[in-house]
Design a protein around this nucleic acid. Sequence first.
DNA 1: GTGGTCTAGACCACG
DNA 2: GTGGTCTAGACCACA
Lengths: 134, 134, 134, 134
Amino acid sequence: MIFAIETDTTIPIYTQLTQQIKQAILNGQANIGETLPSVRSLASDLGVNMHTVNKAYNILVDEGILRKSQQGYSIQFNETLREAPNFRTEVQEQFKSVLIDGLIHGITFAQFQEWSQEIAEELNLSENESFNSN
Amino acid sequence: MIFAIETDTTIPIYTQLTQQIKQAILNGQANIGETLPSVRSLASDLGVNMHTVNKAYNILVDEGILRKSQQGYSIQFNETLREAPNFRTEVQEQFKSVLIDGLIHGITFAQFQEWSQEIAEELNLSENESFNSN
Amino acid sequence: MIFAIETDTTIPIYTQLTQQIKQAILNGQANIGETLPSVRSLASDLGVNMHTVNKAYNILVDEGILRKSQQGYSIQFNETLREAPNFRTEVQEQFKSVLIDGLIHGITFAQFQEWSQEIAEELNLSENESFNSN
Amino acid sequence: MIFAIETDTTIPIYTQLTQQIKQAILNGQANIGETLPSVRSLASDLGVNMHTVNKAYNILVDEGILRKSQQGYSIQFNETLREAPNFRTEVQEQFKSVLIDGLIHGITFAQFQEWSQEIAEELNLSENESFNSN
DNA sequence: GTGGTCTAGACCACG
DNA sequence: GTGGTCTAGACCACA
């Protein structure tokens, strides 16, 4: 599980981290039960502050993706994901925003579909979950 | 072209504005060449700060969507804006982020596809731009 | 809404804050929609760090009790409280722990009941919500 | 007297231990004068660190619940411990905290009362100590 | 003015 | 060794 932090972006570091951890879980690089690197060691590896890693980890705990114990953080990701009541709506609105932003700049639905397939393949979800499975 | 600003959210007001203007352009509520309401009047109508509307307009100018003249801001939206430099990769990354965020919380590709179709219909883009045009 | 922070306790300051805010809401000292003091001003008033107040506020946002907007934090506390799936169980276990801790030190159930009534009166919930209402 | 330690929680192990010992005393599984398993053997059985069991035992000694002798730790639990100094107010405050936390999330006093009765039955305290004894 | 992010560093609790 | 709490202070985004 290798993380790459970009500093020349406006995306917060802790968001970059949560995204990459989620991706690692989805594509199987990180397995359920696996222990994550300690807050301080990961911070040291990435050259960021401890608190930043800590925030990323705790966001994932709140989302039900990580589990916090006294030995550190490990991957939970079971069915009991605690979703905020309007989580679907939030994702849907973000999805719509991205589409509109792309469409007005000439990106076609076909292009978005292509990207979806790429992501599906990258995550090894192409068989039963694919965007164009039907 | 009616705008609805929500103050109970963390989404910046100017972002809400730019998105709604883009959407109005896409679905034909706003036509090319049309002049937008003046900064002052729109700010007054929406009950927001003048600087906020100004910021939204100028972002759209930078994106090549609006054109600023002596008479105010008008809608450009021609083919020139289709060559935005790294806008493609930016949108692509945002798209991927949203997908991953949804997928890890159980939202399927099929669901995203359904949302895409809804958005396509809402924007009346089914003919030449539609997601399932092929 | 007056807060009192005790430093000679092991209870984290942000927990003391969240509890007092909850109590203020329950007993009507804080009304729905009311804006809370800004993170920095409250921190200054209490003589604690900004981040500590920030943490308390954000915990309450996560619990669905506060609402975060660009103008600050305000009291939400509506029916759409987003509860973690095992929230009831957690409270129940804490409740049991406290009872056991008291019982072994000679505190009787009657004493706990008395305390409940005091709390109910303090919160003006005695009529329809009281612990011994039946 | 069987103990179950959960490592997937943030509750300190020594706290889990002290609570379960207290509960065992209350419900009669552990009798006054009885000797507890040695620190080493219990630590070995539970797969935890020796120091952790030691800490739990010593906390109970400080609370007047256990007695340390040459032969090990045994259960005291006499009337002398009923005069803990500020234990009453501590427990009372914890009790209030739990109630407030539950109430603001919609748990009613009636629910807390029900839980109390369940706990009373579980501890076989219904006769002389019960919450609804009057 | 509001909150958000990040850093640096200290001290504590747990095992 | 692990994470938790708190502080002090800087810089940025938003309105």
